[in-house]
């Protein structure tokens, strides 16, 4: 059946009516007003906070200990070099987490009776590693694994740190992905099977893309948390941003380096957060479009 009508071609000689121009003027003035209100409120809050901080009795001390410009400039390059290690750890861990998390999620949603032991193992894994504080896990892996003196275990602290982060985060990401897999409507699976796709193709081309799309916001949320948690590896000693800042701070008796490290983390997480927001908005729009008709 072809009931489709072609859209009318855009008309060049269209001129907005007086009414529409008037409406547009009103909308614009309201937008302008809203922008002003937002800006003024923000400015007022910032000023109030700033005034409260400056007026506090300890401000002088805090200013010289935390907000020392010269200290900031002199230590930032070192911290930045350390931060590069954080970024590397983040990227490597992320890939491994996605792989392991997906594996866990898939194992947990299958129903094949033969996979019962695997399912059990995955469940125990998630229970255990979600339950242990990440910092504690970093300690356990970082100091425990080398102590075993097994052949071939890595000994570099940052590698051990990445292993700990992967084990901890894969448990979270696995659960998020599992929720996503369960959120795909059963009719979709049936539709794919009806087209002759086999179990694997159905998963790969129909179920998984929708599952990931459904859980993208919480997934990105976990990524952002991971980016920050790379700093936990500092306790094992590798020269990443926090550790570098710590050394500088101890040496100079000044806390400004910590502030530098914090700014670096923020500089990465803010764009990530905005990106997550955008994806979320796009997903919401798509759902709207589907619901509207």
């Amino acid at each position: 059946m072809d009931f489709t009508t072609q859209a009318a071609p855009p008309d060049e000689d269209y001129r907005p009516s007086a009414r529409e121009r008037e409406r547009e003027r009103f909308r614009r003035s309201r937008r302008r007003r809203n922008t002003w209100i937002a800006a003024l409120c923000t400015l007022f809050c910032l000023l109030a906070l700033g005034a409260a901080a400056v007026a506090s009795p300890g401000w002088e001390r805090v200013h010289s200990l935390f907000l020392n410009g010269a200290e900031f400039r002199s230590t930032l390059p070192e911290i930045l070099r350390g931060f590069w290690l954080n970024v590397q750890m983040f990227l490597i861990a992320e890939v491994l987490i996605l792989g392991l998390g997906l594996l866990i999620a898939l194992v947990r949603v299958t129903r094949a009776p033969g996979l019962q032991p695997l399912r059990l193992a995955a469940t125990v894994y998630v229970d255990v590693f979600r339950g242990v504080p990440t910092l504690l896990l970093v300690f356990l892996i970082g100091f425990g694994l080398p102590a075993l003196r097994l052949q071939g275990t890595p000994t570099q602290p940052w590698v051990l740190g990445v292993i700990a982060l992967v084990l901890s985060y894969a448990a979270y990401v696995g659960e998020v992905l599992r929720a996503g897999l369960n959120s795909v409507h059963p009719a979709q699976r049936n539709a794919a099977r009806a087209l002759g796709l086999n179990e694997r193709q159905t998963l790969r081309h129909v179920v998984l893309p929708q599952a990931v799309r459904n859980v993208l916001p919480p997934l990105l949320n976990d990524f952002i948390a991971l980016q920050k948690d790379t700093a936990l590896v500092a306790v094992l000693g590798p020269l990443e941003a926090l550790r570098a800042a710590q050394i500088k701070a101890d040496y100079d008796f000044n806390y400004t380096p910590y502030l530098g490290a914090a700014l670096l983390f923020i500089a990465v997480t803010i764009p990530l957060t905005r990106f997550a927001d955008r994806l979320q908005r796009r997903a919401a729009q798509r759902t709207w479009a589907e619901a509207g008709r």
Partner: peptide, 16 residues
């Protein structure tokens, strides 16, 4: 994007 819709007395397309 243009034009008006009235329901009874009120203009629905009025942004106010």
């Amino acid at each position: 994007d243009d034009g008006t819709v009235h329901l009874g007395e009120s203009e629905l397309t009025d942004p106010r």
